[in-house]
Amino acid sequence: MAEVTAPAKVKKPSAINKRKNPIYMAFIYVICIFLLIICLFPFWLLLVNATRSSIEIQTHAVALIPSKYLQNNMNVFKGKDFNVLVGFKNSLIISASATILAVYFSSLTAYALTAYEWKLRDGFFGFIMGVMMIPGQVTAIGFYQMCYKLHLTNNQLMLILPSIAAPMMVFFMRQYLQASLSMEIVESARVDGAGEFYTFNMIVLPIMKPAMATQAIFSFVGAWNNLFTPMILLTKNEYKTMPVMVSLLKGDIYRTEYGAIYLGLFLTVLPLIIIYLLLARYIVAGVALGAVKG
C-alpha cells in the first residue's frame, strides 16, 4: 500500500512548494503584527498620555514612553465633579448583582427546559429563541415611562432585576446542560429523597460551573459597558455608572486638560483590561464556544 500512495504524493510538487513559501509567510506575519499594533497601541497611548503634561501632549500627542505627570493629572482630575470611585462603585454593584442573578436564574430556567417534560416546554423554548435577538434599546421608551411613573428612575434595582430574564444565556446554558447533564444523577438524588430545588442547587449547579464562569464573564462585561439604559434612567450624579461618567468627560471643562482626559479614559478601561489580561484564554475560548452553537 505504501508504494502506491507514495508516488501519488510526489505527483503534486506545486502544493509542497507552497507549503512554506517564505515571502507568503512573511506577508502574513507583517499583516498580523500590524493589526496587533492597531489593536493594542490605542490603549498604550492612553496610559502614556495619562502620565504626560498638557504641554507635552500639545507639542507631540504621540509618545511611546511615559512621563512623570501622573500625580499632577490625578490632582486636576480629582478637582472636577467626575468622581471615578463613585462611578466604579456603582458599576461594580450593578454589574456584579446583575451577573449573579443572570447566571443563577438562567441556569435554573435552562434546567427546567432540560430535566423536565412539561406540556408548554417546547413552546417556551421557542419563545425564548424568538425574543433572544430583541435588543433592550427598542423597548427603552416603554421601560423609561414605566420607571418614571413608578418613581423608579435613579433606582439601581431597575438595572439589576431585568437580568433575571436573559434569553441568550438561557439558550447557552440549555445547550451546555443537554450535553453534560445525565438524568441518572438526578434520579439517584431523588431516590435518596432530595427535593427538586435541593438537587438543582447542590448537584446540578456544580456540574454547570464551567458554563457559568464563561457566561458570568460576558454578562459582567456587558453590564459594565452598558450605556443606553443607565444614561436614560440615572440622572443623579451619585448613581451614575462608569460609562455614563465617561460620557461626561467630553464636556468642555476638560478641554485643555489633555492629560486628565487621557487619565480618566484610562481609569475607566483599567478594570476591564486587568480582567481581560487575567482571563483572556477563557474569554477567547468562550467566544468560540458561543459561536459553535450558531
Binding site: L227, V246, S247, T268, V269, L272, I275, Y276, R281
Partner: peptide
C-alpha cells in the same frame, strides 16, 4: 487575544 481586546472595552470610552 490582541484582536479580540477592543471588543471588551467600553464602547463609550
Amino acid at each position: 487575544v490582541a484582536f479580540y481586546m477592543p471588543n471588551i472595552i467600553t464602547a463609550a470610552t
